[in-house]
Design a protein around this nucleic acid. Structure first.
Length: 463
RNA sequence: UCCCGGGUAGCUCAAUCGGCAGAGCGGGUGGCUGUUAACCACUAGGUUGCAGGUUCGAGUCCUGCCCCGGGAGCCA
């Protein structure tokens, strides 16, 4: 009978004496006289499995090809390791080479590389410690998000990727077209005739599924989306991507306070899940990437978030004994330096800021009775800044219509969105979480391009 | 898009005032009975981002462009 093929992760749980087969990629090989050691990693966990090759077990020509990056199958007996660095190791009986990796050209070395360099070889970087850990945590976080909402009675819905509304105010959009851009059909006046395009009108990649999610929330009660989102802004920062993933819950009958409470419970729950299920990877991030990660996560998972209004935030900033590049003034949006001060210095924990001036927020946010502020909320966290943005939505038809008009938006583009207020309207709220920003926060990674497998940024769509 | 900083061997970096382009790691060869970023010896490896200019002479100075990073804006 063939020995059982197991993952490295499974191998570590099997009893000494088991005969088994593992398959994976060689991290390194160390030779001594008459004995070789292979570090084999298959991505199933952070730790590799040490394979011991005694003289004569493998032909020398084969062993020579077992270099960093090569893919092999190893069959042998699990034995206790005499060395302290690993409890068990695999004493090799049979080796099969799936794919060699020419050491003269293989771009990954045993030793560390800069993240900038690894971005140029994104197709290979997941084979290293850091990116293997990032992508395992990425999976765990996605799973935790679905689990959180499912357990609370939310439905996972899918909103369109292609949209015709270009006026949500969330930034520049990517156009989607099948027209011949060298020679588009034109109207008599020379303008491009979009009625001949695939959808009969100009279309774009979505910047948010929120408006459609509201429609579903006003039928199913509690829903959420978790999908790709696109922004064509020429943003060149460690916190922005042109293509990123966003989680957007939307709840009927939730007011702003319920929304904020959900956001806090949500962040705490998904952090707790990762703390409990990704210990080995998190320890790596703590040791090698950011030595504050573990305390920060433990703290956020337990300590209550701070809640202040925008007006209170401005007062705190104005009283702060320090100089600002942009002095805080009521009516202006909070600058990055302001957000960082609030969350990193004033409170040293996540802060939920609510009730922003109406002029600086989107048309769909519910107007407060003061007529000056809207029921918006941003969740700010140390180092990353704004990680969640949300609001209670304006459910009053007349007020919403007036807001659309005063923002200079075209009423006819929002006919169905207004319909939701015309027929069976209800108070409702929701928010958006930047999935990659959450991953940055959890892993301590400093650049958003290093928490997504193949980042899309201005000038870069390789891979 | 704006403001800074950078681009030299496969990788990470050094090169004084403008004067012979170097090191560590990685690779190759050999050695070493249990290694852990193994170790020891030897060895190969260069269009100094691209295009011009100044100069007896440019990695170094000047101009333009490209790319990368940090900060800002926009936002999640």
């Amino acid at each position: 009978m063939e020995p059982k093929w197991v993952s490295v992760k499974e191998a570590y749980t099997m009893p000494v004496g088991s005969v088994l087969t593992v398959r994976g990629w060689v991290r390194s090989r160390r030779d001594s006289k008459g004995i070789s050691f292979i570090e084999l990693n298959d991505g199933s966990r952070f730790k590799s499995l040490q394979i011991v090759v005694e003289a004569g077990v493998v032909p020398e020509e084969t062993l020579k090809q077992v270099t960093t990056g090569a893919c092999i199958e190893a069959t042998g007996v699990l034995v206790e390791s005499p060395a302290p660095k690993q409890p068990v190791e695999l004493k090799l009986q049979r080796l099969r080479l799936f794919g060699a990796a020419d050491p003269e050209t293989y771009p990954l070395q045993k030793k560390g590389h800069t993240f900038e360099y690894l971005r140029e070889i994104a197709h290979l970087r997941a084979r290293g410690n850091t990116f293997g850990a990032v992508f395992r945590v990425r999976h765990a976080l996605a799973y935790a998000i679905h689990q959180f909402f499912h357990e609370r009675g939310f439905y996972y819905i899918h909103t369109p990727i292609i949209t015709a509304s270009d006026c949500e105010g969330a930034g520049a959009m990517f156009r989607v077209t099948t027209l011949d851009i060298e020679n588009p059909p034109r109207l008599p006046n020379g303008a491009i005739d979009w009625s001949q395009d695939f959808f009969g009108k100009p279309t774009y990649l979505t910047v948010s599924g929120q408006l459609e999610a509201e429609a579903l929330a006003l039928a199913l009660g509690k829903v959420y989306t978790f999908g790709p989102t696109f922004r064509a802004e020429n943003s060149n920062t460690p916190r922005h991507l042109a293509e990123f993933w966003m989680v957007e819950p939307e709840m009927a009958f939730y007011e702003l306070e319920d929304n904020a409470q959900l956001a806090e419970d949500f962040l705490k729950a998904i952090i707790r899940y990762v703390l409990e299920n990704c210990q080995e990877d998190l320890e790596f991030f703590h040791q090698r990437i950011d030595n504050t990660v573990l305390e920060t996560l433990e703290h956020v998972a337990t300590a209550p978030f701070e809640r202040i209004t925008y007006t209170e935030a401005i007062q705190i900033l104005q009283k702060a004994n320090r100089s600002w590049e942009f002095p805080p003034v009521w009516g202006n949006d909070l600058q990055t330096e302001h957000e960082r001060y609030l969350t990193e210095e004033a409170f040293r924990k996540p802060v939920i800021v609510t009730d922003y001036p109406r002029q600086i927020k989107a048309f769909y946010m519910r107007l407060n009775d003061d007529g000056q502020t809207v029921r918006a909320m941003d969740v700010l966290v140390p180092r990353v800044g704004e990680i969640i943005g949300g609001s209670q939505r304006e459910e009053r038809y007349e007020v919403l219509l007036q807001r659309i008009r005063e923002m200079g938006l075209r009423e006819e583009d929002y006919w169905w969105y207004l319909d939701l207020r015309r027929y069976g309207s209800a108070p409702h709220s929701g928010f958006g979480l930047g999935f990659e920003r959450m991953l940055m926060y959890i892993t301590g990674m400093k650049n958003i391009r290093d928490v997504i497998p193949f980042p899309r940024t201005p000038g870069n769509a390789e891979f």
